[in-house]
């Protein structure tokens, strides 16, 4: 029982409480410590053009990456949630691969495909899109590593909707697409929005894949790495705190979106 579980002083409960508390301290202390150390420097960090540009670049590139995964990921999620087809389990498993691959390795894999002197890279280059050290490269890297969040969130949202609701819409004269637009999508909206926020947040925090493809223009994590390497720990504290605070704010928004129903659904 929840109530009074501490009153039952079995060694197991006490040990669990202590270990659990230490885990919590391990997670929270570095974050709180960093923010505490940098309180007086936060303002000046925000004042720095370089820091502001880097944070803006992260937000902007992450937004584009989210848009990209939304356009291509949501249809994939819908297909996986609704239809059975041969090889589905393989496709299903491969969606999570970007989470498992070390992110610098993911960056190199992308470079091998989209880099200069590759077939795809040359093709894109001919229409003016290059991926090395450009915004496109950053977006590509971010989209690759964060796509599972979009796909899985949307897939879960679609799976939670009874297909009979779509059947009714069809019987009432809606085409496949109209049924999706007027019924399925609105019902899955909250799940998809959560997917967008998670994808965006994960994209902002991406470092490994991004730096392989594009060390400039600098995103916030790349900028932080530069500052740390060139000016040392002290100089990196404020920007670190700034990134942490940003992440916490996004996290709170996600929690609000997922916890509070926008409309009473089911």
């Amino acid at each position: 029982m929840k109530e009074g579980w501490l009153r039952e002083r079995s060694p197991f409960i006490i040990a669990s409480a202590i270990f659990g508390f230490l885990m919590l301290v391990f997670i929270l202390l570095p974050i709180i410590n960093t923010v505490a150390l940098s309180v007086d420097k936060l303002g000046s960090a925000l004042m720095s053009f370089e820091a502001r540009d880097a944070i803006f670049m992260s937000f902007y590139a992450a937004f584009l990456a989210t848009l990209f995964t939304f356009i291509f990921g949501v249809p994939l999620a819908y297909t996986l949630a609704r239809y059975d087809f041969p090889g589905k389990s393989i496709i299903d498993a491969s969606i999570d691969l970007p989470i498992l691959i070390p992110h610098d390795a993911a960056g190199i894999a992308l470079l091998l495909l989209f880099g200069p002197r590759t077939m795809i890279g040359t093709g894109f280059s001919s229409i003016g899109i290059n991926f090395v050290d450009t915004l496109f490269g950053i977006v590509l890297a971010m989209a690759f590593v964060s796509s599972p969040f979009m796909i899985r969130s949307a897939e879960d949202a679609f799976k939670a909707i009874n297909p009979d609701v779509e059947k009714v819409a069809r019987s009432l004269g809606a085409s496949n697409f109209k049924a999706f637009l007027h019924v399925t999508f609105p019902l899955a909206f909250r799940g998809i929005l959560t997917g967008c926020l998670l994808t965006w947040a994960r994209s902002i925090s991406e470092f490994g894949a991004v730096i392989i493809l594009a060390s400039v223009p600098r995103t916030a994590p790349v900028y932080l790495y530069d500052v740390f390497g060139n000016q040392g720990l002290g100089a990196a504290v404020a920007i670190t705190a700034l990134l942490i605070i940003t992440a916490v704010v996004i996290f709170v928004i996600i929690k609000l979106v997922t916890a509070k129903p926008l409309k009473p659904v089911y």
Binding site: V165, K167, V168, S171, A174, V183, L187
Partner: peptide
Amino acid sequence: FPPERRGIGFVPQEYMLFPH
């Protein structure tokens, strides 16, 4: 014909009203 062109009225199990 797809369902939307058959001129049917359909009430599935549990009615499946659009909850939104």
